[in-house]
């Protein structure tokens, strides 16, 4: 029975057509990237006010160490990619890095974040620190659900982002329960999930980026963050139906 399923799966993958993405050197299959959850608030802001604000909230894996880390990390790369693709829209991306904080601690900051930043979209990267701490996955899921509810009640669109794919530590940090939890919340609250785990795994498996490499070199971290930023931009453009606003030059 499983053999037929695998064949079906393979056919499904082959049938998935590719779509314009702003990441030619680290492509992602569409089935990993595009869902049915729409970013309506962002769409309205982009169409009516010609401007929107995105806040990225995340732990250490949303940052790149080093002096010029802030410019290399994916929030800044996302901003650059969106500005390039949407020349007629004023795009702001603010990064709120909260290393060593669990989902429940981060969710507590959302009321203030909504007041201070008035974001149209919040990208919430989560999971790794909770997994390292061994937080009860069910409690993690409930915290994420509460946090997303707060953000949505405050009028913001939400994208959830899960953990990095880290092959060296994969059997050591049990990520499964946390990525499942993020997936449940994304379904329940109809918010897109940026499946960073599967996307980075795809890059690794397809040979685009060798994540096994034992390197101290910062350039690989920069490259991965650049790819994440551009891929996330593709997801946002598609999710908020911003294709009509795209500049001709990028297509």
């Amino acid at each position: 029975m499983t053999r037929w399923m695998v064949i079906g799966l393979a056919l499904f993958l082959c049938a998935a057509e590719s779509r314009a993405q702003d990441a030619p050197d680290c492509p992602v299959p569409n089935y990993l990237l595009y869902g049915d959850s729409a970013l309506d608030r962002l769409h309205a802001a982009a169409v009516k006010q010609k401007s929107f604000k995105i806040v990225v909230v995340g732990t250490a894996s949303s940052t790149v160490p080093g002096r010029d880390g802030a410019q290399s990390a994916y929030p800044a790369r996302l901003e650059a990619a969106l500005k390039k693709r949407l020349p007629a829209v004023s795009v702001t991306v603010a990064a709120h890095s909260r290393p060593r904080q669990t989902a429940v601690q981060i969710a507590e900051t959302f009321e203030k974040l909504l007041l201070d930043e008035k974001p149209d979209l919040v990208v919430w990267q989560s999971g790794t620190f909770d997994a390292l701490q061994g937080v009860d996955p069910e409690q993690f899921r409930a915290s994420v659900a509460d946090g997303v509810e707060t953000l949505q009640a405050g009028g913001a669109d939400v994208i959830l982002m899960n953990m990095q794919y880290s092959p060296r530590t994969e059997s050591m940090i049990p990520l499964g329960g946390y990525s499942d939890g993020l997936r449940w919340v994304s379904r329940e609250r109809s918010v897109p999930l940026f499946d960073r785990l599967a996307i980075m795994r795809h890059w690794n498996d397809s040979g685009a980026i060798d994540l096994y490499a034992a390197t101290k070199d910062i350039s690989m971290a920069k490259r991965v963050h650049d790819c994440i930023g551009r891929t996330l931009a593709s997801m946002i453009v598609e999710g908020a139906r911003l294709e009509p606003l795209e500049g001709k030059t990028t297509q």
Binding site: S61, P65, G66, P99, S166, R168, I173, K216, M220, A221
Partner: peptide, 10 residues
């Protein structure tokens, strides 16, 4: 042997 800055959190 794990010093890749990409995975500092892990």
């Amino acid at each position: 042997s794990f010093e890749n800055p990409l995975f500092a959190e892990e």
